[in-house]
Design a protein around this nucleic acid. Structure first.
Lengths: 189, 189
DNA sequence: GTCTATAGCAGGATAGAC
DNA sequence: GTCTATCCTGCTATAGAC
């Protein structure tokens, strides 16, 4: 028995991790199964023992990235104002330059628009999760409309910042988005 | 002389028009030169008489789409509040569902992040053009920070709306973004 | 300037050995 | 479960006829 049963879940996890990293940064079409499997330390042929096809992996990788990103916030926050912490971390240079696992909502918004219904549904559920979670982080109990707008501002700010080639402009943009977010939420900056 | 000299600029214009339409909706990788040329009524071989390669066409098509979209606003506006008109038209169902030529800033933000420097520079110039133009449309002379945030809100709102699979949520999101935009700008809705 | 034909490559998915 | 080898498709870019 050359392959012990404990290895399969490990391989699956490794593939998922590599896929989340590569897909969020580069999108569906720019990443090949070869690249993902190589990054996970495996070869292409082994892929189909774990996932039905490339699209299924993409959807699962988005969820993986979203979970990981949320854990990243809650783990490192030692403040009582979680919402402010979230906004300052999300709308930051570090996020734009891909410090850790980036947020799929901001990095894959355009990409998802052209994918199959399953993928779009996954994206929608992740987005709804964010909108619903925002009020629980604030002490000021913001309205739903404010949360919708702020989520779009977060995602748009990061997406645009990533496309720009002017570092000064990126800094200016992120700062303006943080400021406006607090204004919309009625919180002090 | 089977091909009169007047035909080349016409062909070029047609290619550009088809490219703008297809690229903005589907992104760089999802559109082939074949598709573009077929849409323009030509064949693949003729492409390289007009453009150096696919990337050059992509950059030019973004500019073409941006110009066309701006003309779309100014042409149809018979109001004294141009900024309000712009926001309501940009953050609309019609824009998300691609009525006319969509805005490349919103439809291609993620796509541009992975392209070559020339493309990113083109995107940056278009974006700076938008930010600079916003104050000229308003009677309230908004601050630069407000314009930066509103532009990100416009782009993010449309980009997210396009990815979602829930029509009710899309309507809610767009309305919330319009409302927040006016709040940021200090204008009445 | 536009066409047809093709070179050359990359990637998704499958088959079969171990 | 993982590997190597392969089929098949689609694409960019070029060559050469008209």
């Amino acid at each position: 028995m050359p392959y012990p049963p404990t290895r399969k879940p490990q391989s699956r996890e490794k593939i998922l991790q590599s896929a989340a990293k590569l897909f969020t940064r580069q999108g569906f079409g720019q990443v090949s199964i070869d690249q993902i499997m190589a990054d996970a330390g495996l070869t292409r042929g082994a892929f189909y023992s774990h996932f039905a096809d490339k699209g299924s992996l993409y959807a699962e990788a988005m969820v993986y990235a979203a979970r990981h990103r949320f854990a990243y916030y809650t783990a490192s926050a030692n403040t009582d104002d979680l919402l402010a912490y979230l906004l300052n971390t999300y709308l930051s240079q570090a996020h734009v330059t891909e410090d850790a696992l980036p947020c799929p909502l901001a990095f894959l918004a355009n990409d998802v628009s052209q994918r199959d219904p399953q993928v779009r549904n996954t994206y929608t559920r992740i987005y709804k999760g964010l909108v619903k979670r925002l009020p629980t982080l604030s002490r000021h109990d913001p309205e739903r409309n404010a949360c919708l707008a702020v989520s779009a501002l977060m995602i748009g700010g990061v997406a645009v910042a990533r496309a720009l080639d002017d570092p000064a402009m990126v800094g200016e943009l992120l700062a303006a988005c943080r400021e406006a977010s607090f204004q919309i939420l009625g919180e002090p900056g």
